[in-house]
Each structure stands twice: as structure tokens, then as C-alpha cells.
């Protein structure tokens, strides 16, 4: 596979350099919303959608900023775009499916401070991807996020039934689990060249 082909970029963002387990982006929702499989799935979908929208917007904005030599405003513009994209998603979901809106609750506005999304926008600028590559990158990152959070939620649902020492309950146990997951994802390193 060519290193800049669309399928390679997708696979790379999804599995090899998984945003959560290899690059440590978006740890907060990964630890916070992974208690139940159903909520994790909805959260993953919402995050993926925001990623797609903000990636497209970031591409357009970067094009304009480079045109006018205003690169130092990049960070402020990106974060403003992400905040408005989240607002847009929130309004759309509220209109289309009020049930889903209630299930996601507070986690929806919190997507704004998810570093995976700002990270995605910054990385695609850094790697100088073109428009199609940006799309593939954001879809791959979104799929990778869903994969990681679903795996974690499944494990934690099973773990609720297990007996663990009193001390290790809560965050410490989740982190150990995340470490094991990350260890297994390291097996994909080097895949696709």
C-alpha cells in the first residue's frame, strides 16, 4: 500500500495509531462514558460525526488562513469551529431524535473539550493532507474511537460482575484495563508498512 493512499490513512488512524490507545487523545470520555455499551455506542457515533464536520471545516479554514498569512490564528479558529460544530450536532439531534438527546445528556456539549477532535484538526494540518485524505483520516479516527470505547465498555460491563480487591475499584482498575487494551493494540504496529 502507498503511504498516502486513502485506505492506508484510514487503517492507520483506525487501528495502528488508534487515537485513544496509542496517541492518548480523548481519554476523558474513554474513561467517563464507557460504563454501559449502549451509551458508549451513542457517544462514539456523536464523536465520529463531530470529527467529520470539524475536519471538513478545519480544512476549509486552514486554506483561507494560509491564503491570508494568518497561521497564528489557527488554534483560536479551530476551537471556535469545533464549539459551533458541537452546537450544531446538539441542535440536530434534539430536533431529529429527542430520545437520543436525553440519553447523551451532558456528554454532548462536553465533546467540545475532547482533545481527539482538536488533535485531529491539528494533525491533518501538520501532515498536509488534501481534502479526500482528510475525510479518510477523520472517518478512520472516528471508527478507531468507537472501537476503543466499545471494547472498553464491554470489558467494564463484564468486570462489574467480578470480585476485585476493594482498593483497586474505580479509576485504577479502568486504567489497568486500558493499559492491557493498549498493549494488545501495539500488536498492530507496523501493519501496512
Amino acid at each position: 500500500m502507498q503511504p498516502d493512499s486513502v485506505s492506508f490513512i484510514f487503517l492507520n488512524a483506525c487501528i495502528v495509531n488508534n487515537f485513544v490507545l496509542a496517541l492518548f487523545l480523548g481519554i476523558c470520555p474513554f474513561l467517563g462514558v464507557s460504563g454501559k455499551l449502549h451509551t458508549a455506542w451513542n457517544m462514539g457515533l456523536a464523536t465520529m460525526f463531530v470529527m467529520l464536520v470539524s475536519s471538513i471545516c478545519a480544512y476549509a479554514i486552514n486554506f483561507l488562513l494560509v491564503e491570508f498569512n494568518l497561521e497564528f490564528l489557527r488554534l483560536i479558529c479551530y476551537i471556535a469551529v469545533i464549539a459551533s460544530a458541537v452546537q450544531l450536532v446538539e441542535m440536530t439531534i434534539k430536533k431529529v431524535s429527542p430520545t437520543l438527546f436525553r440519553t447523551l445528556g451532558i456528554f454532548l456539549p462536553l465533546i467540545t473539550t475532547n482533545c481527539a477532535i482538536l488533535g485531529l484538526a491539528l494533525f491533518q494540518t501538520l501532515k498536509e493532507y488534501n481534502f479526500i485524505q482528510c475525510l479518510a483520516y477523520s472517518l478512520g479516527a472516528g471508527t478507531g474511537f468507537i472501537l476503543a470505547i466499545m471494547l472498553m465498555a464491554g470489558l467494564r460491563e463484564k468486570l462489574d460482575l467480578a470480585k476485585v480487591p476493594n482498593v483497586s475499584q474505580g479509576a485504577a482498575l479502568s486504567l489497568m484495563l486500558a493499559g492491557l487494551l493498549s498493549l494488545s493494540f501495539m500488536g498492530f504496529a507496523g501493519l501496512g508498512g
Partner: peptide
């Protein structure tokens, strides 16, 4: 990367 998770988990423990 896994080391980060393990060490933070150990500190929390």
C-alpha cells in the same frame, strides 16, 4: 503507550 496507563493506575492504587 501501555506503560503510561499502567504507571498511572499504579499511582492511583
Amino acid at each position: 503507550p501501555p506503560g503510561g496507563f499502567f504507571v498511572l493506575g499504579a499511582w492511583l492504587l
